[in-house]
Design a protein around this nucleic acid. Structure first.
Length: 676
DNA sequence: TTAGAGCCTG
DNA sequence: CAGGCTCTAA
């Protein structure tokens, strides 16, 4: 039988491993603070610090109101964040975080040395940057699912984390505070303010450029993303989001036309807001000079940044091209995050929407995999598109492709992941940037560029499968490279990941604990869920709600969803029993004398009718047991009707009672959400 | 009271 | 397939 489990090792040992692996399953890259790491490292690298110091020295507060505006916005919104515009709001909230208030507000008259203010400002900008990095995540909460308590908790955790980091850095900053903008020198490093060590300085500059350029990239992507997100919002969200966006624009001084704010601009506008309180400390006579210097810096930075971006793009292409020489230009372009952003919403939506290639040769070794995926173009899209319900969205580029029937079920093994480096936080971030919070992680950049968008696996995997894969990524996994072509998707997952098997409930709770994971928990039932339910009907006519929860781990169950699923099965039964009655009466009409003459085989019309209903694509091998049950049911109906029991209004109840005991176990494969 | 089955209808 | 309805068991 097709669905027999080839992965016995899935059970037993897998259960045992589960506990051990749990911490790891909670992928490090999904932890919130992991998102902050890269940026924290930026701040350690202190490109921001340097910018701040330089800018703060040069720049005069232009508009004190700006600060108050930010502050008041923060105060007003701090209790009701979790809108799509969290980034801006959070930014301002952070800007007036308690610790900052202490340093800036407690003694505004200058008791504190300038360094204190600089630190405060620096910290704020760092916060802004960090928040921006984390905010794509927060967008998902605009659905209102998340409780205020959760929001507070997350925010507090984030703040305390940041404060800790900030505290750790403070002494360092103070030590070097007066040295100007080279505050991030390593302890043993020479002071570069004099510029006497050219090579060291050059190196440092390069490093800084590198960091700046990375940040720039991230910022640009984030901004791009935000703009897209806002523009795609549902009308009902639009008002609120627009407000948030506006406020963001106010705070950041960013223009809507310019989808990209250069970091220095961004930085300067931000710092202009946060440095307003320093205003009276700066000599007005120097203002113009400082402003000129500031502009010079700005121009220099812009120049440097564009150079760096160019270099980066070159590097990306250089890195991509050796392995993807055969890629189509479009594919190649898509492999570069920068280019994806540049290509706009269309391409941006592509990866998430790109279907699973279902007609691929089922058997493909690691080396074949890339090749196969290269062969996958958007034209290979199949009905799998519907597997993930996406929110309103983005232009669906890939949805035009013809459906391709495939032998059921065929999936690609995720073994490729074993060759990839572990997920890095920035990868996650980039993924979010590229594909949005509602995309799944099947196309994480940990994949080879060529697979990024074209992998048949990249679309359809719900998060649990993704978690498994990611688990594989970081674990020992060098075998299981082959699988029989007829093996089902779940079997594949199980074969490849024998030690990461989770029950639906665990998946759900895990996903609920982790906002990023829950991205792939479906809010509603999709056509593929329906299809799966129909196939499950071949095994169970009366599934309990627990069974349903177990076998739909990627569905976020609530009362409504549960009833809907139950209703589905009720409808299935209805059709089933109607067919049974119909064919039983037909048999009687045809003069069948003996119930034993009535059989149900795969050639039977009855079976065809049922198969057509529950397995329309005919890509599922119906279990023999179902034929037996169907036959029994038919016999029951035949007997009841032939003995005139159907005159009783509730004559079917007796039959139902019999049939409900004939449920068989649903294969484990169905437990995997990526089954279809 | 609630969940779920079953029936009917659109 | 979903919604509305009744009925029943827990």
């Amino acid at each position: 039988m097709n669905l027999s489990l080839p992965d016995q090792n899935m059970h037993g040992s897998s259960e045992g491993c589960l506990e051990d692996d749990k911490p790891e399953l909670m992928l490090p890259c999904f932890r919130r603070n992991m998102y902050e790491e890269p940026l924290a490292s930026y701040s350690n690298g202190s490109i921001i610090s340097q910018l701040l110091r330089k800018t703060i020295h040069n720049k005069r507060p232009l508009d004190e109101n700006h600060f108050y505006l930010s502050g008041s916005v923060a105060a007003a919104d701090s209790g009701q964040e979790d809108q799509s515009s969290v980034s801006s709001k959070d930014s301002t909230v952070e800007a007036v975080s308690p610790s900052d208030r202490v340093s800036t507000g407690a003694s505004p008259e200058g008791e504190h040395p300038l360094a204190d203010h600089l630190q405060a400002k620096r910290a704020r900008v760092e916060n802004i940057i960090r928040v921006m990095a984390g905010s794509p995540n927060s967008r998902q909460y605009c659905d209102g699912e998340r409780s205020d308590a959760d929001a507070r908790e997350t925010r507090e955790a984030r703040e305390s984390y940041r404060e800790n980091k900030r505290k750790q850095r403070l002494p360092q900053h103070q030590e070097h505070g007066t040295a100007g903008w080279q505050m991030n020198k390593k302890p043993g490093g020479s002071s570069s303010s004099g510029g006497d060590n050219c090579s060291t300085k050059e190196e440092e500059c390069n490093k800084l450029k590198e960091q700046l350029h990375s940040m720039q990239r991230l910022l640009r992507q984030l901004q791009e993303k935000f703009l897209q997100v806002y523009s795609q919002e549902d009308p009902e969200y639009e008002a609120g989001d627009a407000a948030g966006l506006d406020s963001e624009h106010d705070v950041l001084g960013e223009s809507t036309d310019a989808c990209y704010i250069s970091p220095d601009e961004h930085f300067e506008t931000s710092s202009s807001a946060v440095t307003a309180n320093c205003k009276d400390r700066i000599n007005p006579a120097d203002y113009l000079v400082h402003q000129r210097e500031s502009q010079n810096l700005q121009a220099t930075l812009k120049q440097e940044l564009s150079k760096a971006v160019n270099d980066c793009i070159d590097r990306v292409f250089r890195r991509v091209s050796p392995t993807d020489m055969d890629m189509s230009p479009q594919q190649r372009v898509c492999s570069s995050p920068e280019m994806q952003i540049g290509l706009g919403a269309d391409t941006e939506s592509t990866p998430a929407d790109h279907p699973q290639a279902e007609d691929m040769p089922a058997k493909s070794g690691p080396s074949e995999y890339c090749e196969s995926s290269k062969a996958q173009t958007s034209q290979d899209q199949t009905e799998a598109l519907s597997l993930v319900v996406r929110k309103p969205p983005v232009t669906q580029v890939g949805s035009v492709t013809p459906a391709v029937k495939r032998p059921y079920p065929v999936h690609q093994a995720p073994f490729q992941f074993s060759y990839n480096p572990p997920l890095h936080e920035s990868h996650i971030l980039e993924h979010l940037l590229k594909y949005g919070p509602h995309s799944n992680f099947g196309a994480l950049p940990c994949m080879p560029p060529s697979m990024d968008r074209t992998s048949p696996d990249s679309v359809d995997l719900s998060w649990d499968a993704m978690a498994m894969r990611s688990k594989v990524t970081s674990s020992h996994f060098g075998h299981h490279h082959h699988r029989p072509s007829s093996m089902g998707a779940v079997a594949v997952d199980g074969l490849c990941l024998p030690h990461v098997k989770m029950e639906g409930g665990e998946l759900q709770s895990l996903a609920e604990r982790n906002p990023y994971m829950s991205l792939n928990i479906q809010e509603g039932l999709t056509p593929s869920h329906l299809k799966k339910a129909k196939l499950m009907f071949f095994y169970t006519r009366y599934p309990s709600s627990n069974v349903l929860k177990t076998f739909f781990p990627d569905v976020k169950f609530n009362r409504c969803i549960t009833s809907q699923l139950i209703k589905w099965f009720s409808n299935f039964r209805e059709f089933y029993y109607i067919q049974m009655e119909k064919f039983a009466r037909q048999a009687i009409a045809e003069g069948v004398r003996d119930v034993k003459d009535i059989t149900v085989s795969r050639d039977s019309e009855l079976f065809r009718a049922l198969n057509m209903h529950y397995n329309k694509a005919n890509d599922f091998h119906v279990p023999d047991r179902f034929l037996e049950v169907a036959e029994i049911t038919l016999h029951e109906f035949y007997n009841a009707i032939s003995s005139a029991k159907d005159s009783d209004s509730s004559w079917k109840k007796a039959i139902y009672k019999v049939i409900c005991k004939l449920d068989s176990e649903i294969p484990e494969e169905f437990k995997t959400s990526s089954y279809l």
